[in-house]
Amino acid sequence: MDEFFQQLINALVLGGIYALIAVGYTMVYGIIQLINFAHGEVFMLGAYFAFTLVTAFHLPFWAAVPISMILCAGFGLLMDYVAYRPIRNAPRLSALITAIGVSIALQNIARIIWGAKPRPFPSDSLPSFMRQLGQNETPEIYFSLLGIEFTQANISFSENVSIAYLDFFIILLAIILMVALNRLVTLTKIGKAMRACAQSRIAANLMGINTNRVIAVTFAIGSFLGAIAGVMVGVREYIEPTMGYYKGVAAFAAAVLGGIGNITGAMFGGLLIGFAEVFGAGYIPYGYGSGYRIAIAYIVMIIVILIRPTGLFGKSTGHRA
């Protein structure tokens, strides 16, 4: 049973990361029906920006993360302005090809600037609670609450079920950002404009909404969220030029699974892909099975799409954008 709860935590963390990235895909798609393949690269750049700020400019981690997010939001604006706005009214295929081109270009630019080798965040630059343990360190227990121990290294529910502070933080962050985004889209004026654009860009324009501005804001928000996911993955794993590609493909699958264009769908899609991957790898008998965890996640996606072609939260339910 311990094992099951630990896997549940593993799945939540991975799902949260996917959800944060998937939102970026789905928001842009909801408004301009463009699959922005370069979103995975924005995620990668978010990690590299924070890494560079910490290592080359010696900024503290807490300052580097927001700066990196703002840089990425700006980068999202730039990407829209340079690559997508000029072909806004061209056939959708042109925009799709452009997106793939931007993705490949950014990957290679990152490779030229930062090199092909994977780079971890230097652990001495991280806040102490994100630090990992060495081999024979026994974590010191800070305090315990209702049988849950808060130790130096993690939050430990029982001997074999624990969650690292970083992972806990990722889940928390995913929830907070998702709720905030949901509020933004439903309650604010710009959110209303985004929903209007999602329904019909032409009609929204006729009503006096500056659609180009709305689209730009959408890119900025998506990139902002992608960047924080990038930093979190960079700290948890490592940073490399192709990291956006692999995580991006999985997140895109999550967006499709949830019903592309739908934010709630992207959140649940992300979680479902995370669960499929972790439980697929965890409960398939030992040996080769767990090597195919990504395939398992995609099989789940295909099954859902076959049953519900519009995804879990297809267009009829909920709102787009």
């Binding site: 692999y246 030992y286 099975g289 090597g291 965890r293």
Partner: peptide
């Protein structure tokens, strides 16, 4: 006591490692 695979395109191995830990 344990024998499990991973794919090089993934960077999260917690599922496999949880099994091994058991």
């Amino acid at each position: 006591v344990a024998d499990t695979a991973y794919d090089r395109d993934t960077t999260d191995y917690t599922a496999q490692l949880t099994n091994i830990k058991a």
